[in-house]
């Protein structure tokens, strides 16, 4: 029975692990469905009135009125000057009134609407897709880079090790946000792939250090010496022999970094360095929250917070269980 199978059996005995794995799978399924366009495809459609409240909240008549207040025709004093754009404006107003009549918008939605009347629930689902894609892809990139660099540095030693250690020091010496901003400036445009690149390119350092230490430890083990004595090449020893024996470290780090990067994406988007305005993520939802909270519109921040807290907690518990299953000595 292989060690992986034994780890799987240990994992199956862990109730918290199974429960968190189910939550993680549900989140990934939601993200996949959203990516495939099955759900939340129309998240950008302005289906409700501005700040339409959730259905389970009793509508506040005063707010309703404020929300429904259309463009008013308050006559203004023009100081005797004729507005040169008046005919065009009148035309636009007439066109708007016909195309999207305010009367057709819903006055309440399942979990409310944002400032532009977009459905918060749909936004949260779409945001799940963005956040998970960013978290998984950037963690995969960071784990790939960290493992590759760590393997070479630890196995080769000498100047290769010195070079990667120097790179590691450079990356960890620069304040995180400064580094992120610098990379964002170099990459130019905003967007999901940019965020993935930023997080992946800056986040490999911790994994590098751990994998390097593992390679240092394993390369002098007898089984690697035995592989050398049967003629296995360096590449074969590094990736066919040692890698499977350190892969549990990488796996645990991968899943830890998913959590870390989901949170990082939220912070980045909140600060405005994250995804563009044509995309929604939990971070960009939270970024809209401060102005809404002043007006007492709590539903957007609540939706984003619940989704994020659930996903991050489930992922963290899942990581713990994976670590326990893969490395029973830690228990």
């Amino acid at each position: 029975m292989s060690l992986w199978l034994l780890a799987w059996q240990r994992f199956l005995r862990d109730r918290v692990g199974i429960a968190s794995a189910i939550v993680v799978v549900v989140f990934i399924a939601i993200a996949a469905a959203s990516a495939a366009g099955w759900v939340a495809r129309d998240w950008g459609k302005e289906v409700g009135v501005s700040y339409a409240p959730p259905r389970f909240v009793k509508p506040n008549p005063a707010e309703q009125k404020a929300g429904l207040a259309g463009p008013s025709d308050v006559s203004r004093n023009d100081y005797g000057i004729r507005d040169p754009l008046a005919p065009e404006l009148a035309e636009i107003r007439a066109g708007l009134a016909g195309a999207s009549p305010t009367e057709k918008r819903a006055t309440s939605l399942a979990f409310g609407a944002d400032k532009w009347g977009r459905d918060v629930l749909q936004k949260a689902v779409k945001g799940t897709e963005t956040s998970l894609v960013v978290g998984l892809a950037s963690a995969a990139l960071a784990a790939f880079l960290g493992t590759l660099f760590g393997a070479f540095a630890g196995y080769r030693g000498g100047w290769v090790d010195d070079f990667f250690n120097w790179l590691y020091s450079v990356f960890t010496a620069i304040p995180y946000l400064l580094l992120v901003l610098a990379i964002a400036a170099v990459l130019g445009q905003k967007g999901v792939s940019t965020v993935i690149l930023i997080l992946g390119l800056t986040g490999w350092t911790g994994i590098f250090r751990l994998v390097r230490a593992e390679y240092l430890k394993h390369k002098v083990r007898e089984y690697v010496l035995a592989a050398d004595s049967i003629g296995a090449s360096d590449a074969r020893r590094m990736f066919a022999h040692i890698l499977p024996n350190v892969s549990h470290v990488v796996l645990v780090q991968l899943s830890l970094h998913v959590v870390l990067f989901i949170k990082s994406e939220v912070i980045l988007s909140f600060l405005g360095f994250g995804v563009g305005i044509d995309t929604v993520s939990w971070g960009s939802m939270l970024a809209e929250a401060p102005s809404e909270l002043i007006l007492g519109m709590w539903w957007q921040i609540t939706a984003a917070t619940i989704a994020m807290a659930l996903a991050v907690t489930a992922f963290s518990l899942f990581t713990d269980s994976v670590r326990d299953a893969l490395d029973p000595r830690l228990e």
Partner: peptide, 13 residues
Amino acid sequence: VVFQNPYASLNPR
């Protein structure tokens, strides 16, 4: 070569 420690000289994976 046959090594000393049979617990370490075979790749566990």
